[in-house]
Design a protein around this nucleic acid. Structure first.
Ligand SMILES: Nc1ccn([C@H]2C[C@H](O)[C@@H](COP(=O)(O)OP(=O)(O)OP(=O)(O)O)O2)c(=O)n1
Ligand SMILES: [Mg+2]
Ligand SMILES: [Mg+2]
Length: 443
DNA sequence: GCGGATCAC
DNA sequence: TATGGTGATCCGC
């Protein structure tokens, strides 16, 4: 339960004071209790890992290192400097849009969201420790002058569309990852402007918003780069092996897309902090992690990533969920359940979608999350069928809990896609988060 | 196929 | 007073 300082707006902030305020505002709350519980779980995972490590002997580790080296040789084979990959990410996106539309917000600390939750904050506010995913009422304690403006998704969608329009000129296959960021392969574009050398592999958009560019030989590195020199800057990794290895050497693993808070703790517990540590500890990592994860770690340590920017496949699921003031009376729970079914079906119809797995998600007032799924034989988008399935799942949950009432703060519905036949699974990008590129791992 | 956990934004 | 919503992946059953 502390400030998430990975995505810093700037250094130089009084973390001690900030963490104290967050703690004072959070302690004793059900939310806080749950966070503590989750932290204990992570600690237990680390302890289990520690025990496993102690059961290894040195010879085993050495053998694993040799195996890892062979895998690394294969990875080295695939190192590719032929593509110029750009990752673009708008600065403080929602906040920037609001500041554009209301310049009086420009030089004051400001955030987008509500008193319960903020979506993002501008750079003024970040100096006070105000961040995305922080409740507004805590942010106000950190920064009493903070102005909070409500979200206008439609506006952000429009701006996003305008920017994409521009980016398409540089790469028609541009791959948007969210409203405010995208990967581009500008190799072709650069070829069309032959007079550019490597240092000049930079480019501009005419948009009014500030943005970050990361420019590198692959997507993983470009993404990391776009987080450097913030805001409104750019960072380029020269296109040669030494430059990449230098870049990766002291890079904290936490900066890499896919390695989050928990993975970072687990790795840290065995002395892995930077990407070169991933190489140093390869013998251990191979034994501790799955083939998919380990391969991903090795690639990160080598600074190798995907060079193929391509649109994602069709969506695999569609869901809707809502947080509300406690509901515990069965009749009201079922009514909420029906509401969500209607909402989901409306969305499904917009894209004329079908799936066959229905998932009910609930979060108790203690923030315990549970999901229950049921797969139908046939895909359908019929409200009644969806509801009768979801209703049964909910009824089971209520019975499970009785005679205590089921006390919820959130309910959600999701509709999953039909599983594709095995052979049809297509490799997409890379890494662990979109696995599968490396099915051919050595024995 | 299911459910929990993790991650990104 | 008050701690979000959507989509995806991985792992261990
Ligand atoms: N937990 C989060 C993180 C982000 N967002 C939204 C608001 C952000 O404006 C937008 C883009 O996310 P970024 O991670 O790129 O954050 P920003 O663009 O706000 O800031 P930065 O300058 O660090 O990119 O997504 C959100 O709703 N919830
Ligand atoms: Mg951004
Ligand atoms: Mg972003």
């Amino acid at each position: 339960m502390a400030l998430n300082d990975n995505k810093a707006g700037m250094g130089n902030l009084d973390k001690e004071r900030i963490n104290k305020v967050i703690y004072e505002m959070s302690k004793g709350s059900k939310y806080y209790e749950n966070e503590q519980r989750k932290e204990e779980q992570v600690k237990a995972k680390i302890a289990a890992q520690h025990k496993q490590i102690q059961s290894f002997d040195a010879r085993e580790i050495e053998k694993s290192e040799l195996q890892a080296d062979a895998m690394l040789a294969a990875i080295e084979e695939m190192r590719d400097f032929s593509r110029t990959i750009v990752h673009i990410d708008m600065d403080a996106f929602y906040a920037a849009v609001e500041m554009r539309d209301n310049p009086s917000l420009k030089n004051i600390p400001m955030a987008v969201g509500g008193s319960a939750m903020l979506s993002t904050s501008n750079y003024e506010a970040r100096r006070f420790g105000v961040r995305a995913a922080m409740p507004g009422f805590i942010a106000k304690k950190l920064c009493p002058d903070l102005v909070i403006v409500p979200t206008n998704f439609d506006k952000y969608r429009q701006v996003s569309k305008d920017v994409k329009e521009i980016l398409l000129q540089y790469d028609p296959n541009m791959c948007p990852m969210s409203l405010d960021e995208a990967y581009l392969d500008i190799t072709q574009h650069l070829a069309e402007r032959k007079n550019f050398d490597a240092e000049q592999k930079t480019f501009r958009t005419a948009d009014g918003e500030q943005r970050m560019f990361g420019i590198a030989p692959n997507m993983m590195l470009a993404k990391v780069c776009s987080d450097f020199n913030k805001p409104n800057g750019q960072y380029l990794i020269p296109f040669n092996r030494q430059a990449v290895m230098d870049f990766v050497k002291d890079l904290p693993v936490r900066k890499v897309c896919g390695i989050g808070r928990v993975s970072c703790s687990m790795l840290g517990a065995m002395g892995v902090v930077t990407c070169s540590d991933l190489f140093r500890k390869r013998g251990l990592l191979l034994k501790l992690y799955s083939a998919i994860s380990f391969n991903y770690f090795l690639r990160v340590s080598a600074g190798v990533g995907s060079t193929s920017v391509q649109r994602g496949d069709d969506r695999k699921s569609m869901s809707t969920e809502r947080t509300f003031a406690e509901i515990n009376r069965p009749a009201e729970l079922f009514a909420k359940c029906y509401e969500l079914c209607e909402a989901l079906v409306e969305d499904l119809k917009k894209e004329n979608l079908k799936g066959k797995t229905i998932t009910l998600k609930i979060k108790t007032i203690k923030y315990i999350v549970r999901t229950k799924a049921h797969s139908l034989l046939n895909a359908t988008q019929d409200v009644q069928l969806l509801y009768s399935t979801a209703r049964d799942l909910l009824r089971t949950e209520i019975r499970l809990c009785s005679p205590e009432p089921l006390r919820l703060r959130l309910m959600g519905k999701s509709r999953g896609e039909q599983k594709l036949p095995f052979g049809a699974v297509k490799p997409k990008t890379d890494g662990r988060h979109t696995l599968l590129n490396y099915f051919k791992s050595p024995k």
